[in-house]
Amino acid sequence: MTGVKGMLGAVVTAPLGALARVLDAPLRLWQRLTGQGGMVAFFLLPNMAIFTIFVLLPLVINVAYSMTTGAALFLPERTYVGAAQYERLLRCADYTNLATCQEDQFWIALRNTGTFVVLQVSLLIVAATITALILNRALRALSFWRAVFFFPVLLSPVVVGLIWRWILDRNGVLNAALVGMGMDPVNWLLERNYAFSAAIGVTIWAHLGFFALILLAGLQAIPRDLYEAAEMDGTKPARVFWRITLPLLMPNMLVVIVLALIRAVQVFDEAYVLTGGGPGTATLFLTQYIYEVGFASLLKNPGLAAAASILMGGVLILLTLLQLALGKRNERKGRLK
């Protein structure tokens, strides 16, 4: 273990070391000229420059983009239209009928994403909790079982999408199994409800291990003596679960739920490779809508895409604040203990 760790450290630091030696002399001079302040600036500069140009600046000008119209890419060449893009996104003649909305695709994407978030997150959390509870039973070969669930987490979304597209194909192995059992084959990716369920199932498959792992860490942190005390009192297992396990797991559980929500709101790659948003618009989600409107369609509309992404960003910021607040609360509780 330490051998691997040391080797890894060496592999990581060796190329950096070579660079560091070259920079030794010039930086000594720089330090003499500018003092410690100059060195702090030097250490911060590369990261903060990239961060400012490619994260902060886009964040700020995104708002400006969402208030302009036209196909021009650069901000100064675009026409200011105020809140017109937001109005276009949100205006419907009759809110009970999405077909009357000016941007009905946006509303369809919104409805799909909403449904997806509710179903996927609740199923995912239930499955992850069950998995964590099972892994927490003094199992032999725990690392193997953990690996079983964790394996798909590292796979790329494109690979995940293609693996399942192949299995769910009309002539795929799943249909072969159905026919083998005397049932009719199903057009998994070409029927609306099946395709939507497939998107939910595949994303759960891909992310289950990640969430189970965090919950497992939470379960393992629950003091054993609580369970021993409960056993001595002859408490029923169900009662132990509701009264000890679940309440003590709650802090982790909340963080996991918020993380899962944040991920689900942005669902894109796996679903996109799996179904391409289809059939029709059955699995069109928000991120894909933004991608299509801003980049992929013939009539690119960067302003509209920016407005939609700001609306999505708003939801994500709320969720992030919620997560930070939960984290703070956990930290305070941890200190009190």
């Binding site: 933004i290 960067p302 960003g313």
Partner: peptide
């Protein structure tokens, strides 16, 4: 802040 929120300005 995910990339998907700043796609348009980042692209520009």
């Amino acid at each position: 802040i995910p990339l998907s929120v700043i796609l348009v300005p980042l692209y520009s």
